[in-house]
Simulated assay, not measured.
Amino acid sequence: MAVSIRDVAQRAGVSVGTVSNVLNRPEVVSEESVVRVTQAIEELGYVRNEAARKLRGGVSSTVGFVVLDGQNPYFNEVVRGAEDEATKHGIAIIHGNTDNVKQRERLYLDLFVEQQVRGVLISPYGDITRELKELRSRGIAAVLVDRFSGDNLFSSVSIDSVLGGRMAVEHLIRTGRRRIAFVGGPFDVRQVNDRLAGARVAAEHSEVDVDLEVVATAEMTIEEGTAAGTRLLARPPSERPDGIFAANDMIALGLLHTLVVDGRMLVPDAIGLIGFDDIPFAKVGAVPLSSIQQPARMIGRTALRVLLEEAHDPESIPRRTVFQPELVVRRSTAPST
């Protein structure tokens, strides 16, 4: 069985982080710890991998990227932006998809630590503070993508999702919608909560009476959008919304498919529909979909630049980069008649 870095730490009587520092940043470790770790390595026959050797020379050529939902074309565009920037620096992106599963997120982070990547970009599921602190203790820089750090401990690159949610519902109100449903979930995803918060602000500050309800979904997928559409159609006509703000375009496209096929709630005649992300498929549907646009590739490029800067200077102050969303109007929200 191969000897791991944890085995070395146990033999030397130090933390895994200390062993990592001895391997990669010996100048920050006491001489005594260096001696103990080096002796443990020799006794156990621990062999450091090629990625670790490169990192010790300061030329690691890989960056890890953990995305929230690999099925969503939005994240594909973000990764593409990071790859475009990485290519300029001779760096490769290794990315994994968590599908909103915490265990998978942990698996990828552990893998990236073992591979001794130069840094990690991550669009996390739930609270990730402890894991990011652990990466930092091992000398691996980390930047949040599509979400910000509430405690400002880590750099982030995102858009203002609260503003985006507000823009979406304000647009529906301007087109004459008064019974609006927010369709999305799960609510332990920060982006979903932020978009709902913005929607509520728009409804509360409207000059006309607006009813805003929440229709929860288990995931942010086309299938969940289709199921939500079926539930809405099962209601009596008087209890159906006349406007829908979907938490992302995938949900919106599922809703659109169900409504178009059924035919009882035509879009946009009977109901207005707007999504979030403005993925490429939004403009080519049976009814072109209005959406809140995120500059996906710019987010990816910027996140990679910030990560490389922090990898070069671990003592740099974390910064928060926030892009502004844009409203893209298409036929799905044409004014009600």
Rank of each mutant, 00 (worst) to 15 (best):
I279M: 13
L289S: 12
Q293E: 12
L307W: 07
A286Q: 10
R301N: 02
P280L: 02
R301V: 02
R301E: 15
L307E: 03
P288F: 06
V284T: 15
S290P: 11
P295T: 02
V287G: 13
F281M: 15
T302Y: 00
A282R: 11
E309R: 12
S291V: 12
I292F: 10
R305W: 01
I279D: 07
P295K: 03
M298F: 00
L308A: 06
V306A: 03
L308M: 15
P288W: 00
K283M: 10
L304A: 04
Q294N: 05
G285T: 15
T302I: 01
T302V: 04
S291H: 09
R305Q: 14
R305Y: 01
P288G: 11
E310Y: 02
I279L: 06
L289C: 14
R297P: 05
V287R: 11
G285A: 15
L304R: 01
L289A: 10
R297G: 08
V284A: 11
P295S: 05
Q294P: 05
V306F: 03
M298A: 10
A303G: 08
V287S: 12
Q293A: 14
V287C: 14
R305A: 06
Q294K: 06
R301K: 11
T302D: 03
L308W: 07
L307T: 05
L304T: 05
E309S: 12
G285E: 13
T302R: 02
K283N: 08
A303Y: 00
K283W: 00
